[in-house]
């Protein structure tokens, strides 16, 4: 494959992606949330998310407090973007680990087969036999409540998915003539894996990353809702929903805005995932 055709084909899928309205909308939603997170991470939030103003407790949305305030008079907008940056950090770290470990194990297992492959498949079956949140809950409880602990727990839960997604195509690709021929030519195994096998399993992995990010955000917010993630007074979207339970009847904004943030970012990531799936799979392009 020459450099030119490679460049052309990659431009092609980018072009195709931007032709889909839902893909573009998804990307915009995700970018808005990422921007807000960065603003919060740089301490540029309009009001300190931890600052309490008891005089202004439970005020509705206004010019000063865009999303209103909670029972301690803390600014819900600043807390929401702070929570979003925490959710996104956990999602990125956990999916990053899961993708790296999962793809490595899946490719190695699929390519070499034998007992190694058997072990990898068995181990992922074991993890698959637990409902995700339950497993994450047990692991978080063993590790601790920091965002890194949460990320590790979620990474363990989602690694098997990446093992499956990577292993399947490798099983097909390794029997293909072009892989057999480079083997005959005596290329080293790492080179075959990186240069010839990996490019052909990349598309489903990229799609899986987008979808897993959305699941990771749901799992993270679920854990903090249960009190097993971020601890107060730090802001986290799940924890904010949990704290809003007794308030929501007379302060709808305390429940509505954190919920909206979670929903928007998950919708966005799902649309991006679907868009990527259509753009990266030539078979779907012609049919859809």
């Amino acid at each position: 494959m020459s450099k030119e055709t490679k460049a052309a084909s990659s431009k092609d899928w980018v072009h195709y992606y931007f032709k889909s309205t839902s893909g573009v909308i998804g990307l915009i939603l995700v970018l808005i949330m990422v921007t807000l997170s960065i603003i919060s991470a740089l301490n540029l939030a309009p009001i300190d998310p931890l600052e309490q103003n008891p005089v202004d407790a439970l005020k509705g949305p206004s010019g000063t407090y865009w999303f209103g305030t909670d029972q301690f008079g803390r600014d819900i907008f600043s807390r929401s973007i702070d929570g979003m940056s925490r959710s996104l950090s956990v999602a990125l770290l956990s999916v990053g680990i899961a993708a790296l470990v999962g793809v490595f194990l899946g490719v190695i297992g699929g390519f070499f087969g034998g007992w190694l492959d058997g072990l990898v498949v068995r181990a992922s079956d074991v993890i698959f036999a637990f409902p995700a949140i339950l497993l994450a809950l047990a692991i978080v409880n063993s590790l601790g409540n920091s965002w890194i602990d949460t990320s590790i727990a979620i990474a363990i839960v989602y690694t098997p998915i990446f093992i499956r997604v990577a292993r399947g195509p490798v099983l097909t690709v390794k029997e293909m003539d072009y892989v057999k021929s480079v083997r005959v030519l005596g290329f080293s195994t790492p080179r075959i894996l990186i240069r010839h096998v990996m490019p052909n399993v990349l598309a489903p992995i990229v799609v899986q990353i987008a979808l897993s990010l959305s699941w990771a955000i749901l799992t993270e917010s679920g854990l903090s809702f249960l009190g097993l993630g971020t601890q107060p007074p730090d802001a986290s979207l799940g924890l904010m929903v949990s704290e809003a339970q007794p308030l929501a009847a007379f302060a709808w904004w305390s429940l509505f805005f954190p919920s909206l943030f979670i929903t928007v970012v998950v919708v966005g990531l799902n649309l991006v995932g679907d868009g990527l799936r259509d753009a990266l799979d030539p078979a779907r392009r012609s049919s859809g």
């Binding site: 679920g222 429940l255 919920s259 979670i262 998950v266």
Partner: peptide, 22 residues
């Protein structure tokens, strides 16, 4: 389908509890 996928169960539950009870 998209909303059902994206709205977490705990958000939906909390909303139902609030609306129904109050």
């Amino acid at each position: 389908g998209l909303l059902a996928l994206a709205i977490p169960g705990f958000v939906l539950s909390t909303t139902i509890v609030t609306v129904m009870a109050n």
